[in-house]
Design a protein around this nucleic acid. Structure first.
Lengths: 208, 208
DNA sequence: GTCTATAGTAAGATAGAC
DNA sequence: GTCTATCTTACTATAGAC
């Protein structure tokens, strides 16, 4: 086999084209043509377009989430028996995603993130499988922010994810490639913003 | 005419279906069927599917942006000759969007916002036309946050937009409709988060 | 302005030879 | 495992009668 595994070639080009055009507009024909494999190979190796998307996500985002849990566990262990600092916890979530920006072309990861914002009918199932266990672990924030209601913590967690995603997902691939995306600086900015956000006074009514 | 204008009927159902399924997956056939008008009526009134999308956006998001500018001008006038407070400026941006959540079904607005995250090829042009003038006006933040570099202000503005969009755009219509979306509370939470975020210390190197 | 009918295109999926 | 060829379906858009 002189060239990479067919399966890997499909994944590589599917990832690129999904990221660039979104799920619907990236046709299997375009993907297989770019990968220089046969159209039918997709169905042989993955079964369907949807399963191909899932494989793309699993390959790229799965490791990010594993790293998040690894870092979170480390932060908890190092601080024990006390609680880890808010910043360490937030960083354990944000840094793995930003670290990936070094290895993969940034706009690829950004484009994949955008797909998670597309029609939920396709992505909701993957989203839950990918992120469910991770988000579960971040309940550790509850005792770290004891003055906030669980609902407000959840809301702020959502704000953080939105800030992270949108900071990396503007409108249009051209803009995407031309942006200032020094990952370390972007992470510094983002961490400062969300850490302050989490430390803001509670706004929910205090429970009776 | 016993029922609303054909044009309006198309807009109503296009809005709903675009919001629910995204641009690509909402077919003109489904839209015209729901609106109980003929398929060809879309092309007669709007010319193309893309122009229909633009009309939908203009009708719903245009007024939000006008209200933003109106409130921003008011805040500036009331504070003159001093600068308006950070909070007033941020609120002038966030509140009009949240106010709309009272009038329209929340998930509709959220679904439209999601389309702005879809493939830029279609939406970038509309995005610039819709938001360009507004974002321009918020340069007022530069003197309000003198310790931040212009780039960092831009980054934080982006974080704010991301937090706003994502807080209202989770994954999947089912979840969308069942969420806790009391607009006023959501606004309070969001404002507290982003105001604190803007007030965080600068992270960019001080300019030489 | 509204309709029917259809042109023209592109998509995902599959059967079956090799 | 890989290929060609094709099935089936769905879409946007338009022509032309009323």
């Amino acid at each position: 086999m002189p060239r990479p595994d067919t399966r890997e070639r499909i994944l590589d080009h599917a990832e690129r084209l999904f990221a660039e055009h979104g799920y619907d507009r990236a046709s299997l024909r375009a993907i297989t043509e770019a990968a220089e494999v046969n159209l039918a190979a997709v169905h042989y190796h993955f079964g369907s377009k949807e399963h191909l998307l899932e494989a793309v996500f699993q390959r790229r985002i799965g490791p990010i989430n594993e790293e998040r849990i690894r870092r979170l566990d480390l932060a908890i262990a190092e601080a024990a028996p006390a609680l880890p600092s808010l910043r360490r916890v937030l960083e354990s979530f944000l840094r793995p995603a930003v670290e990936q920006l070094r290895r993969v072309d940034a706009w690829i990861l950004m484009g994949l993130a955008r797909i998670l914002h597309e029609d939920g009918a396709i992505t909701t199932r993957h989203f839950d499988r990918l992120f469910g266990p991770v988000i579960e672990r971040y309940r550790i924030l509850l005792p770290i922010c004891p003055e906030l209601s669980p609902e407000e913590i959840q809301a702020r967690f959502r704000f953080m994810i939105g800030a992270m995603l949108h900071s990396t997902v503007p409108s249009g691939p051209e803009e995407l490639r031309s942006r200032d995306t020094d990952p370390e600086r972007q992470l510094r900015r983002l961490l400062a913003f969300v850490e302050a956000g989490f430390e803001a006074p509670a706004t929910d009514e205090v429970k009776a």
